[in-house]
Design a protein around this nucleic acid. Sequence first.
DNA 1: AATGAATGAGACTTCATTCAT
DNA 2: TATGAATGAAGTCTCATTCAT
Lengths: 198, 198, 198, 198
Amino acid sequence: MPKVTEEHRAARRAQIVAAARRCVIEQGFHKTTMAEVIRESGLSAGAVYGYFKSKEQIVEAIAEEALSTVDELFGKLLASEEPLSPLAALEAALNHVVSIAERPGGDVTRVAIQAWSEALRNPAIMTIAQGKYAQVRGRFEDVARRGQADGTVDPSVDPRHIAQALFGIVPGFLLQRLIMGDVAPGTYTAGLRALLRS
Amino acid sequence: MPKVTEEHRAARRAQIVAAARRCVIEQGFHKTTMAEVIRESGLSAGAVYGYFKSKEQIVEAIAEEALSTVDELFGKLLASEEPLSPLAALEAALNHVVSIAERPGGDVTRVAIQAWSEALRNPAIMTIAQGKYAQVRGRFEDVARRGQADGTVDPSVDPRHIAQALFGIVPGFLLQRLIMGDVAPGTYTAGLRALLRS
Amino acid sequence: MPKVTEEHRAARRAQIVAAARRCVIEQGFHKTTMAEVIRESGLSAGAVYGYFKSKEQIVEAIAEEALSTVDELFGKLLASEEPLSPLAALEAALNHVVSIAERPGGDVTRVAIQAWSEALRNPAIMTIAQGKYAQVRGRFEDVARRGQADGTVDPSVDPRHIAQALFGIVPGFLLQRLIMGDVAPGTYTAGLRALLRS
Amino acid sequence: MPKVTEEHRAARRAQIVAAARRCVIEQGFHKTTMAEVIRESGLSAGAVYGYFKSKEQIVEAIAEEALSTVDELFGKLLASEEPLSPLAALEAALNHVVSIAERPGGDVTRVAIQAWSEALRNPAIMTIAQGKYAQVRGRFEDVARRGQADGTVDPSVDPRHIAQALFGIVPGFLLQRLIMGDVAPGTYTAGLRALLRS
DNA sequence: AATGAATGAGACTTCATTCAT
DNA sequence: TATGAATGAAGTCTCATTCAT
């Protein structure tokens, strides 16, 4: 008995989150009203509040969803057993950004930016962001360590710092993509590589 | 019409902007209420509205202020006539981020993040961001070109792409500084350099 | 969507309009505050704004209501098939003014005066007034034409001008009733008739 | 010494009233702000408040000015010693309405309408209106009496009622002129006369 | 369980008036 | 006496949330 109900609940939640995501992508967390989410979801106010206790919970769900898109990245990357150079991992990450941005359902990277600023005043989102980003950086650290083992990366540098640098390239790409609209993974990494050729 | 007025007006505006900045750093653009800005500024509601037509104008003023901190960077850098390598310019930029973050009056980098997400739905802020970032990237492009002339940077790569990559490293640093709290300019650029050794 | 809703909505609107009318009769459109209308209506602010988008819409509803009292006049008059002389129609109109002024719910003629002055700067109310008054004058024109056919009215005069004159006697009655407080339909028409006896 | 000052004061008051009248004609008493009156008058806030204690006093001055235009009417009429029939007096009154409406400085009849509705809630304006209108009706009463003496007016009717009727024709003309925009003194009185032919 | 009308605290803004200069 | 920046009470309206049906 609970199985059906359980799926039903999950489907309803997804429906609400999808509606809210569409609103947030266009208007941001704060300009999105519950009335809009309710209308967009096709449910009633009471129903929505049956699945989420408050607007804040919906916001957190959306923020988590957006920040969780990084989870998928290394799932794909580490599936192949080939050796993965740091710059290859980075390029994969940038391609991943473009790929999720172009998914149907709306550009989730716009939500990610919102989550960054929201994290500054919402501890729940801050915690989610820290967890997700610690995890991705951990993956990049693995990649860096492998590169150091291979001899392709300077072994004298703390791999955690290499991971910070690698991970830190992604937000700037994402941001320029949304604000300037003129970046692409291939040329971006090319520009980066040009710097390193000394 | 007295002479006082011009300076006085500027001082009052600064007073209001400073009050609003303090509020926005703590609570974000949307959770900051005019009542708080008014109280924090020490003025009356009417006085504040005498200097800014609406809350939105104050928000824009603060966003512009935060986005304009990039202006100071190359002013300093280009003052010295020494050749400036791209990575040196980048390191200067990261140091600049830390320096403005630690200024009295509050960490303006927290406002910059807000400005990013606000730009997505506020055309005025979008325009400011685009203008400022186009300008900084132009400076980084000059640096890249100089490097190419020096032979320290791969001349076959479009300097605009190099500028994108250079500029794009800064937001990730700023973000990690605020969210993870564990990055520093020196180790960050070290991590980056480590990627290049082959 | 329940059946209740439609009637319920109408009843609520009427409740709000009645509350607002009471306020406007005492204080005028502009001195009436939404807080008073809300309190007087017994509803909450949100409820009131659920039925009317703005104070201006409430004002327009009240103005329309007041200007629409003329609608009832000829409904009654023309029901009877007796020939209706212009002066009889006028006397009926004046009696109608007194009758609506004394209705429970407040003297709507006070609202009508407000509507006149409001029409000068509110195009919506101007349009309503023009429509209503054009209609009443049309009725008076019919009466004038009948009189001309009967031979009781000078046939050489444009019936539209006769209608203007007939209709134009009413505002002055209404105004004197409210400002001077010393007019009555019977003596008023007697005074008028005395002029015409030459 | 006081003479110059006295004239100066009067000139200043006139300047303020003229400015306020322009505003009120366009926007009505309540939508006219003191800031607008101040700007339009070319004086400073402090100066304006040196001549009028409050906005309400300015409103009253303008209302009085508008209601006082009736004073001029019988000044002219009674200057000529010719016998003045009631309908001739009326036609003179309607012409007077048109004449003051077309004066430079703005259509004061628009202010008169405002004064009517304002009188309903402002005792000061009510008193002014009652005084002025009692006076005009007194003049019309004189005319009626003369007519009765001449035998041109039915002597069995109370001349006060004749005066009410005569005076009461003017507001409807003024109103139709402003709202419908299609009346003229000549055709209006023609329409009125047509009613009398039996 | 679902509905959606109702709630009411609180947001932003205006504007008549004052008073230090 | 004149100025006009400053005041702050009060106005209109929104919107997250609840609860009777």
